[in-house]
């Protein structure tokens, strides 16, 4: 078994299993903690608030623009770029078809891939440098923030290094970091990719009950 076969074979299946079980465990584990039912007389719908808050917090309020400016630029640039890469990069579409779903969809042309990758990198670097030079973010950041960022960066970087798709070793390197990233994910703050739904939703439900969604 070559190294590539290993990271795309057994290692990949172990990683994706840990990822799936870990994410579900943590997500459901949070819900399972439970919360009290609100006994006060409602003035609005909690479930509508739950949904509304999830969408409301995608957009920042202009009054906080000074601080959110860099974050909305970096945040959107990174996350959109990453999603485009994740689901529409040609090798990913092929991989998803072969290893996960059994069917594929049209992939991005190479130039669009490059632009998406640059947007993702620019955003990630912007967010990370903000973390190291803003006193507020320095105060609240921990090792998990940096490890998560650097691992994501390495996954993206090794992916782009393999862009030529001519060298097996680079593809294997990318897969190696993907596997590490997948295993790290459920134990880390990367979980925000899923828990944001609960976080926004619970606040929306609490205040939706009061007739206002903050």
């Amino acid at each position: 078994m070559t190294f590539l076969e290993f990271v795309e074979g057994p290692a990949w299946y172990v990683a994706i299993t840990i990822f799936t079980i870990g994410v579900l465990w943590r997500f459901l584990g949070i819900i399972a903690i439970g919360r009290r039912t609100d006994m006060s007389a409602p003035k609005g719908s909690a479930s509508a608030g739950f949904v509304k808050a999830i969408f409301r917090h995608f957009l920042p309020r202009t009054i906080f623009a000074e601080r959110t400016r860099v974050h909305i630029l970096g945040g959107y640039s990174f996350h959109l770029g990453l999603f485009i890469l994740l689901f529409f990069a040609a090798p990913h579409v092929v991989f998803i078809k072969a290893h996960i779903l059994g069917f594929g969809w049209p992939a991005l042309p190479r130039w669009a891939f490059i632009i998406a990758a640059q947007a993702a990198f620019a955003g990630l670097i912007l967010l990370w440098v903000r973390r190291i030079c803003d006193p507020v973010m320095r105060q609240i950041s921990d090792w998990d923030d940096h490890v998560g960022t650097i691992l994501t960066f390495l996954v993206m970087l090794t992916g782009c290094l393999a862009l030529q798709e001519s060298v097996e070793a680079l593809r294997a390197l990318h897969m190696l970091f993907v596997n590490i990233w997948l295993i790290y994910f459920p134990f880390s703050r990367l979980m925000h990719a899923f828990t944001f739904i609960l976080s926004r939703g619970y606040t929306g439900a609490t205040y939706g009950h009061r007739g206002i969604v903050p």
Binding site: I30, I33, G34, R35, H71, M137, R189, L198
Partner: peptide, 15 residues
């Protein structure tokens, strides 16, 4: 559950 979700979702952005 709400508090747990808050703690787990915070990305330390400082906004």
């Amino acid at each position: 559950a709400s508090t747990a979700a808050y703690f787990d979702a915070c990305v330390h952005c400082g906004e």
